[in-house]
């Protein structure tokens, strides 16, 4: 399962790519694989304030709607408009072209609540061991 070394992660399978005070958010390979073909992405409103681990937006696969939580608190500065017409970008390239939103971070100490790539990798292994794999798709 592909994981990007310098990103941070949540246990809900979102990633955060930090660049100064701006964080880019998306979902992980594990999440896109479990969801299957993504058919709709609700883009968050620009300027909206979001809280760490609170609802950021939702996306839908053929089967179901799924909530996406924000890995960090802050204000939405940009959203990926490409996803409106082609949500499958997330399936094809979840870590780069499939980004969902950019957030101006309000408290960078919150990053300590996130998982490093190694920690997230270990977390995924623990899910597999517990047989919880793909539970989001069932």
């Amino acid at each position: 399962m592909e994981i990007i070394e310098h990103y941070l992660y949540t246990k809900e399978h979102e990633w955060l790519d930090l660049d100064g005070e701006i964080g880019t958010v998306g979902i992980t390979e594990y999440a896109q694989s479990a969801l299957g073909d993504i058919t709709f992405v609700e883009l968050p409103e620009i300027e909206k304030e979001v809280e760490q681990f609170e609802l950021l937006t939702s996306l839908e696969s053929v089967k179901a709607a799924n909530d996406i939580f924000s890995p960090i608190s802050g204000k939405i500065t940009e959203v990926n408009d490409e996803l409106t017409a082609d949500p499958g970008i997330i399936n094809r390239d979840c870590y780069e072209k499939g980004w969902i939103a950019k957030i101006k971070i309000s408290d960078d100490e919150e990053t300590s609540n996130l998982l490093t790539a190694d920690e997230y990798s270990n977390y995924l292994e623990s899910l597999d061991r517990n047989g919880d794999g793909d539970s989001s798709d069932e």
Binding site: F40, E60, A65, T84
Partner: peptide, 13 residues
């Protein structure tokens, strides 16, 4: 019974 088409890609469930 009614059959309806969403105005977007968002699906009824």
């Amino acid at each position: 019974i009614v059959h309806f088409v969403s105005e977007s890609r968002r699906a009824p469930r």
